[in-house]
């Protein structure tokens, strides 16, 4: 198996504050990788480096085959990204959102048309083609946002708390889409505060005070910590955090 992410000793300092402290890990193609940690543990800072949005202070990393230090523009073109806070333009129609993001990621005009039809058919959204995104129910918006994030067929998609504030039924529909995408070989890198979702990941890492304190399958982590749920594992690790904020 080849790795889609591989980082070694990745570090980010702001002044004398070390937000990310020498983290090393790799993520395999087609894997669902859960990136957990308390608020302030350094997840967002680490993720920004992986997405090519900020440069490491030290350490090395490759994402989707590109160097995060020197080829960050290539990284941006070859990954997908979705967050709960921002993903689609509410005041644009369904087809306009698809066209906009397809264009930004450099998919050519003809191909956008073809893939839009395909995507709308797959989601059973043909009737909503001209609907404004703000008029869609939340569950539909999420499905569309995820489809748009992988529209340019990236090898990896980063999902930053994609299910924050979402009801149990909609969260489950969303995870079934994640499963299906992973089955097709798309690598999933996901952050969440729902510990039941941590169980859906192939492997999970838990950040504490800028370091990765645990990384394994949910099953092995639970047995290592003598816990029955990932929630207990998380609590056991986060309790020892020195950094409050």
């Amino acid at each position: 198996m080849d790795s889609v992410i591989k980082v070694e000793e990745l570090t980010k300092r702001f002044g004398n504050f070390t937000a990310v402290d020498h983290i090393s890990f790799s993520v395999q193609r087609g894997e669902i990788f859960g990136f957990l940690g308390a608020n302030g543990a350094g997840k967002t800072t680490a993720m920004r480096m992986l997405c090519g949005l900020s440069r490491p202070t030290s350490g090395r990393g490759m994402v989707a085959g590109y160097d995060i230090e020197t080829q960050y523009e290539d990284i941006k073109n070859n990954i997908g990204y979705m967050s709960q806070r921002f993903s689609l333009y509410e005041d644009l129609k369904v087809w306009e959102n698809i066209r906009l993001f397809g264009g930004i990621y450099g998919v050519d005009e003809k191909e956008i048309k073809h893939r839009t039809d395909e995507l709308l058919a797959e989601l059973h959204f043909e009737k909503e083609r001209n609907a404004y995104v703000k008029s869609l129910p939340l569950g539909w918006k999420q499905k569309l946002a995820f489809s748009v994030a992988i529209f340019h067929r990236p090898s990896i998609v980063f999902l930053d708390e994609p299910t924050g504030g979402v009801d149990p039924a909609t969260r489950r529909q969303f995870w079934e889409m994640i499963y299906a995408a992973a089955e097709q070989g798309i690598t999933i890198f996901v952050t969440t505060h729902y510990m039941d979702e941590a169980e859906y990941c192939n492997r999970v890492s838990i950040m504490v005070d800028g370091r990765i304190d645990a990384l394994d399958t949910p099953r092995r982590l639970k047995s290592e910590f003598g816990a029955t749920t990932m929630d207990e594992v998380f609590r056991a690790l986060a309790r020892h955090a020195g950094r409050k904020e």
Binding site: G37, N39, G165, H193, F234, A238, R239
Partner: peptide
Amino acid sequence: TTGVDPVSRQ
């Protein structure tokens, strides 16, 4: 508590 980690939520 939306977007807050499990320990802070508790």
